[in-house]
């Protein structure tokens, strides 16, 4: 059996204020591959972590735009070009009749953009994550708050990072290893 590789450090906190302040310090220290894990959303955490605006809105817009264009093309091709079909004396290419489908497909593709875009940006679905090997981490869904810093972070250093994390006011620090 080879030696399990290191995933990173996990620090446990007991309340919102401490983890918010700790997150600000980790951010200011310049770490990039790290995350916070809390039982509920915390207002101001995005700012404390220095997170940039998500590009998700653009994906949604792109989806909506694509849905709108596709729907119009689809109906034009089917109704006016490939199989011209006269309905109640309206022009073959009659926009008012095509609006409902266009509207629906715009919504549908926007929703696709939001749903699949969110999954992709979060790299989901993810069936395995090293953090779940930690017994302590289970309380992240009930009453504990966590910060994890990955060993892949360019600033990560076994000694220095640990020393830094000890100053943050957490209640416990542990190393997390990848499951074999």
């Amino acid at each position: 059996m080879s030696k399990p590789s290191l995933f990173g450090y996990l620090v446990e906190f007991e309340d919102v204020t401490t983890i918010l302040n700790a997150a600000r310090e980790v951010r200011d220290e310049g770490y990039t591959k790290w995350d916070t894990h809390t039982p509920f959303p915390i207002h101001g955490m995005d700012g404390a972590m220095g997170m940039k605006m998500s590009i998700l809105p653009w994906l949604v817009f792109g989806g909506g735009f694509m849905g709108c264009t596709l729907a119009m093309l689809l109906q034009w091709w089917m109704n006016a070009y490939d199989y011209p079909y006269l309905v109640s004396g309206k022009p073959l290419w009659s926009i008012p009749a095509f609006i409902p489908v266009t509207f629906e497909l715009t919504i549908l593709f926007s929703a696709f953009g939001a749903f699949f875009g969110m999954l992709a940006l979060n790299q989901l679905p993810e069936l395995y994550h090293a953090l779940f090997t930690s017994e302590r981490f289970r309380r992240a869904t009930s009453d504990r708050f966590f910060i994890s810093i990955e060993a892949k972070d360019p600033r990560f250093d076994l000694e220095k990072t640990r020393a830094f994390l000890e100053t943050l006011g957490g209640t416990a620090i542990e190393t997390v290893e990848e499951d074999e």
């Binding site: 109640s88 004396g89 309206k90 008012p96 009749a97 609006i99 409902p100 509207f103």
Partner: peptide, 15 residues
Amino acid sequence: AYIGFSQYMLYWYGN
């Protein structure tokens, strides 16, 4: 817009 178009389309279609 949704309401305005709903009103327009039915009358346009019914003609």
